[in-house]
């Protein structure tokens, strides 16, 4: 049943939200698409912008730096999401059993998600600094203590300033910040698996491994997929941690697409071309969002709560 008689009432309810979304998000995205066909430098009036047609896009296809940036983005995304999913699900399985004091630990685990991304970036930049950082210091000391480990990178070095290690360091930071998110969601999912199903499998003689791979994980399959998709979208969207930690450097080692777009727009001052690169990023997130929509739409009312 519907609660209203007049057909215009629902529109009145959604009107304010529609206006804000149109002004704040939809028009700007449309405008970015429009700008992507222009050459427009920052600080010059819009009247002087030059229409280029698809020239920006052909430039995009040939642009080595963009290709490099896409490569960095994909590597960064692959390693962060993969390691975070494995660690998050693993921890959730290991710590599934309810214990005393769980709420304190859970409170601690959500802290990294509540902290401002720029604070996260800055604090890790300080801790990873080659001169003052505690992490290179202790890693170097371990390497001196056990020289064998020096072959595996246990040497004091400026990890964020080194082309070979910068991206890896950035991945570690992301894992620190986001593994707890996956852990908490998967844990909530696991604890919601009906007890009678688990008990039935137990009576049938399932061991821990069978219980996990045949019963519990399949039960929360959709949840895992949606968590992965949301995480993927967020990794592609993220900018601020890398912005303050490395600003894409050294060279292009940590220049993910979002940093590349910002630099093209506000450092190279090329607003039109920055919008063209934006279209790549928005295309990726758009495709991922379609999948989220398929797997998880709260307004599609099937079943009950």
């Amino acid at each position: 049943m519907s609660i209203q008689k007049q057909s215009w009432v629902p529109y009145l309810f959604i009107l304010p939200a529609a206006i804000v979304l149109i002004v704040g998000l939809i028009i700007p995205v449309g405008n970015a698409l429009y700008l992507s066909f222009f050459s427009w430098d920052m600080g010059t009036p819009w009247d002087t912008a030059e229409f280029l047609g698809i020239e920006n896009y052909t430039r995009l296809l040939q642009d080595e730096t963009v290709r490099k940036s896409i490569g960095v983005t994909l590597r960064y995304t692959f390693w962060t999401t993969t390691l975070e999913m494995i660690a998050g699900i693993g921890l959730a399985l290991a710590l599934e059993k309810p214990i005393r004091g769980a709420s304190i630990f859970r409170t601690i685990f959500i802290l990294p998600l509540m902290i401002s991304p720029i604070i996260v970036g800055l604090i890790w930049r300080y801790m990873l600094d080659g001169r003052t950082g505690i992490i290179p210091h202790y890693i170097g000391q371990i390497g001196e203590l056990i020289p064998f480990l020096q072959n595996f990178g246990f040497v004091k070095s400026a990890y964020l300033a080194n082309i070979d290690t910068a991206l890896r360091a950035a991945i570690v930071v992301d894992i620190w910040q986001w593994t707890p998110f996956i852990f908490i969601i998967i844990l909530a999912g696991l604890q919601a698996v009906p007890a009678d199903i688990v008990n039935a499998a137990y009576i049938d003689g399932a061991n821990w491994w069978q219980m996990t791979t045949r019963v519990k994980l399949p039960m929360i399959r959709n949840l895992i997929i949606v968590t992965l998709l949301l995480r993927l979208v967020d990794v592609f969207r993220a900018l601020e941690v890398l912005f303050v930690m490395t600003f894409g450097g050294p060279a292009q080692a940590t220049e993910v697409l979002s940093v590349k777009i910002y630099k093209t727009a506000f450092a190279a001052q090329n607003l039109g071309y920055a919008s063209t690169i934006s279209m790549v990023l928005i295309g990726i997130t758009f495709i991922l969002s379609i999948f989220v929509l398929i797997y998880n739409n709260p307004t599609r009312q099937e079943g009950s709560h």
């Binding site: 979304l21 995205v29 970015a32 700008l35 989220v292």
Partner: peptide, 19 residues
Amino acid sequence: TLLVRMVPPVVLTVPIFGL
């Protein structure tokens, strides 16, 4: 609503700055 939720903020910087 769900689709615009996924828009990367950095994409909005240029249009918002200009528009």
